[in-house]
Amino acid sequence: MGTEEKQIKHAADHAAEGAGGGPILFFIIGLAIALGIGWIAFPKALYSQKQQPFDFSHSLHNGLVDNGCESCHFFREDGSYAGVPKLAQCIGCHEDVQGSTPEEKVFVEEYVKKGKEVPWLIYSRQPDCVFFSHAAHVKVAKMKCEECHGPIGESKNLKPYEQNRITGYSRDIWGQNIAGIKTHTYDRMKMDDCADCHKERGVKASSVQTERDACFVCHK
């Protein structure tokens, strides 16, 4: 060891003594701040909250119709899925105010009377590149709506619609859990969730590349 190196080594030892627990403490402070930002502040900042035009009780309606979800969320003749009902369907019952809820009054006065479609914010709206066949899942695979949409039929209120400020998607696609951890089948609606379920159920593997489903099954 040359003199120069010795000097340097000495300086290093000295520095270590003087600092004590400092570095570790600062490390922990930094870590804590970052974790706070990443886990708490970031999700809050990422999503904006929007209210639906007016409230709606699925459970109330579910009790009044004969055919469950399909009474309003029905299939068209061409096999496509109508999704959220249009004004035309609601008018059947709501030509005039029926009950006593303020929401219904808003609906009838603001939309039915004016012939305006309700600008519902759709929680499960998939991006434009996605083709989803409700027919394949509901008619052929006989899946229940709840498996993907959760027990929405029992809800009394509409929760606020959370929109990702960057992507414009509904938060329900990624799921409420910011880490992307899910406990129910309906917690997330990302592509991987579709893919996992397909794999689990052995839905045809038609891709040469991945030996999974070919992309055109769900994309358009």
Binding site: L31, A34, I37
Partner: peptide, 11 residues
Amino acid sequence: GFGAGIALSPL
């Protein structure tokens, strides 16, 4: 520490 914390968060 901050860097490690960020990396360990979903951000």
